[in-house]
Nucleic acid binder design. Sequence first.
DNA 1: GCGACTTTGTGCATCGGTTCACAAAGGGAT
DNA 2: ATCCCTTTGTGAACCGATGCACAAAGTCGC
Lengths: 225, 225
Amino acid sequence: MKSPSQPRDRGIPEATVARLPLYLRALHGMAERGVATVSSEDLAGATGVNSAKLRKDLSHLGSYGTRGVGYEVEYLVYQISRELGLTQDWAVAIVGVGNLGRALANYGGFVSRGFRVAALVDADPEVVGDTIAGLNVEHIDDLEAVIVQRGVSIVVLATPAAAAQKVCDRVTAVGVTSILNFAPVVLSVPDGVDVRKVDLSIELQILAFHEQRKAGGPLMAVDSQ
Amino acid sequence: MKSPSQPRDRGIPEATVARLPLYLRALHGMAERGVATVSSEDLAGATGVNSAKLRKDLSHLGSYGTRGVGYEVEYLVYQISRELGLTQDWAVAIVGVGNLGRALANYGGFVSRGFRVAALVDADPEVVGDTIAGLNVEHIDDLEAVIVQRGVSIVVLATPAAAAQKVCDRVTAVGVTSILNFAPVVLSVPDGVDVRKVDLSIELQILAFHEQRKAGGPLMAVDSQ
DNA sequence: GCGACTTTGTGCATCGGTTCACAAAGGGAT
DNA sequence: ATCCCTTTGTGAACCGATGCACAAAGTCGC
């Protein structure tokens, strides 16, 4: 075992953070297949990034590789998990249990990464009281109570656009500072609150733009995962 | 009416393309509320971007503003729509009709932007033949036939991770060059094929990283929609 | 124990994107 | 018709991210 010299830099580039989950996924797969060590070249190949970029990314967490050999898979999995905060248990609440909310509640990718769906909340009396993915759907009136009592720190917004800002205001008021927003609106939040948005129709529009280009001119746009 | 001097630059930055749908959404809202013209300052406020950036973005499509006044809402809606290729009808196929595929099939945001769900495909005999969102679910064996016959040009992958690459290979083989991938795998595709990926668990992991930072050190990360 | 080979970690040049700041352009009032 | 006010469009500095290329570091075979 080597000495943990570097105490981890306190300023990891945003672009690097966004790629760490990608590396982690590939590494999990390798660990399952019994791979013990991996070179930057191989891991880069498995994740579709440049190997120099990968090494620079990993160097931000410290010097965890061995020259001439590569990286120890298990050790790297642990380091990245720790850096991303996945070694702790995160309680997530999903607000809005329409088609999308339901899909998210049942999505396996959350649980397998240290995220626990702790509550489902909706405004529609028709669905309140239903059981989805083993959870009771609660009423929006109890939103604040549910969040505080269950220690929810991340809220997923899967409500209609019109309701999103109001729910956002209410959850930030009780201290939530991380929001994943699926509603097609720009949320305004207090300083210190992180919002990430996923807009399904925006992704399609970007594809349409490139598709149109291909059909039109001789300038072919090429893939970029 | 002004002369359409600039014939539109053939090299719009990727970052700009990614923001155009955002502007378009805000402009649609304004048009509905009867707003005739809008300044870069106002539109920037409504979309959460810097006004200089917004002006530079729009300048890539040509000079469609009037100094001292702003931009004509209707005209800008048309220009952006045209640039993104939304004035034509795009046939989309959704492969994989699990929870997520179902949610996507019912998602209103697609239809309202010129996208038409032309086919639902799945491998599970249990769901093949079902009607979802008014569409008959077809068998994966007919994948190629369905795509060709209906003129599908964009494929949405909502399959399990293990099946995604195979489906991807099959659809690219019959000429599809635009793929929206929800499966947590890195797809390998021929040159000239665009892949955009949406990974729900990656977004949560990025939030968790920042959340952990906030709890730990005095360096507070701030929002960035 | 030594030399050849492999692979990491990083300095440096480059690039795309963001932001500031302002000159140019147009509208409206007088 | 002229002047003032508003707002666009863009030149230029800046910033973060990318990718090349190589020296440093460590392993493995002999």
